[in-house]
Simulated scan of single mutants.
Amino acid sequence: MARDSTATDGPANDIPDRLIAAAVAMLAEEGPSAIKARAVAARAGMSSMVVYNYFGGVPELLSAVEDHGFDQLGQAFAEVGASDDPVADLFTMALTTLSYARANPHLYDAMFGLSTRATYRPTSAKGERRAGHSPAFNTAYAHVVEAATRLGSVGGLAVEDPRAAAGALWSFVHGYIALELSQHFAEFADPVRQVLVPMGVTFCVGLGADHASALASHETALRRAWHPGP
């Protein structure tokens, strides 16, 4: 039996986190159609009214779930750090994003709305798509922009506008991820090496990188992302 919204095991400020955790778990197990106020609240051991009391409704709860995902992605980007090879750093972030999407496909779709037709597309009061205005999104994306900036300042590439360079990288990486999640690369034995790496190398060569050095940096990223450690 669902508990009353005032009956909790912890402090009141723990309730939003418990609801988000329940929604994330249900999203992973059942997909976006499972995210209903009553179901999420029951999973968290509460009454459905807590969803409305703390979030306003299911779309707002899903916005908080998206922010949870961007917080995790931002933390993963921060762990990549900044080496003396910004190309490797950027591609390590790309592979980190791919790993996150593979492990959390429904959450990834809720965050970016790319791989499937999600039930909810949260918007602001002005009708804007919310992700580009979310502080959690912006914090995560700032790591990408900073790394793109270092392509010029450290890597010596021709980066006139780091935000445009970051946007171009962001576009082809998420395009690849959306297609991979939709099984469009089934004919490739290793689509990351056969499709994603060549795109990344071509992107860097377009900014003035030597092909061999760009490829070496991508190989470094593959080792860092797939086999982390000393």
Rank of each mutant, 00 (worst) to 15 (best):
E60Y: 07
D67Q: 09
F112M: 08
G45S: 13
A12F: 12
L98C: 11
G113P: 02
G10V: 10
H133F: 13
A37Y: 03
G229L: 01
D17S: 13
V40S: 02
R121A: 11
V192L: 12
V51I: 08
T96G: 11
V197W: 04
A39P: 00
E29H: 05
L222K: 08
A221F: 06
S5Y: 10
A25D: 11
G69A: 15
D85I: 12
P198C: 13
N138S: 15
T139M: 08
A166W: 09
S134F: 13
G45W: 09
S182V: 00
S48G: 02
T220W: 03
L107M: 13
T220V: 10
H218Q: 08
T149V: 04
L61N: 00
A140W: 11
G81Y: 13
H143M: 01
V65T: 09
D109M: 04
H143T: 07
H133Q: 15
N53H: 03
A25C: 10
L27R: 02
H211A: 03
A178L: 06
G69N: 15
V145H: 08
F203P: 04
A178E: 08
P122M: 11
R117A: 12
A21L: 04
A221T: 07
M1G: 15
A103W: 13
D85C: 12
M26T: 01
V24N: 07
A44Q: 05
V50P: 02
A88C: 10
G208Y: 06
S134T: 14
R129F: 14
P105D: 14
Q75M: 09
G127S: 12
S83G: 11
L179S: 00
A103R: 15
D161V: 12
L90N: 01
L179E: 00
G113E: 09
G155P: 09
L27C: 05
L19Y: 07
L107Y: 14
T119E: 00
D161R: 14
G74L: 04
S83M: 03
L61H: 04
A221V: 07
G10N: 14
